[in-house]
């Protein structure tokens, strides 16, 4: 798989986009795969009782799904040496249909000494950011 060349990169370059469609089955699958069985991610009654609009996606699911864009761009998933985010807004996932989350990655900073690129991800649902300060440091 081809890997980006550090010398070809400039701050502000877009690395790509990714659309993540989330349905309830996806959340159940992530719950099983991750071991996070908090019922707010699969039980409508429980979610509304604790004041949520309904079942919401695991923040960790959205974080994990967003970084797949960076993995593919980097050509080597293990090149992502640091990855962080803040969870700013829940993503409600309907009983029927899907919630659509959009991910856009941009080169946010370059460190020539370390040969790393910081990729900043904009992760939005219905036009609003659901993750903030979403930064993946990629060793190139």
């Amino acid at each position: 798989m081809t890997r980006p060349e550090f010398s070809d990169l400039s701050v502000g370059d877009e690395i790509g986009t990714r659309t993540v469609e989330i349905d309830r089955a996806r959340l159940v699958r992530y719950a099983g795969a991750s071991g996070d069985f908090n019922p707010i991610h699969w039980n409508e009654r429980f979610a509304t009782e604790v004041g949520l609009p309904g079942v919401i996606a695991h923040g960790m699911f959205t974080m994990g799904a967003a970084v797949a864009l960076v993995e593919e761009w980097a050509g080597d998933p293990a090149a992502v040496v640091d990855y962080q985010t803040r969870f700013s807004r829940p993503v409600p996932v309907p009983d029927q249909g899907v919630a659509v989350v959009e991910v856009v990655g941009v080169v946010g900073a370059l460190d020539a000494d370390a040969s790393t690129a910081r990729i900043d991800l904009a992760v939005t649902f219905e036009g609003a950011r659901v993750l903030m300060k979403t930064q993946a440091v990629v060793r190139l």
């Binding site: 991750s34 994990g64 799904a65 993995e71």
Partner: peptide, 8 residues
């Protein structure tokens, strides 16, 4: 589950 399809 997270859609990471890289072959590795």
């Amino acid at each position: 589950a997270v859609g990471s399809l890289h072959p590795v």
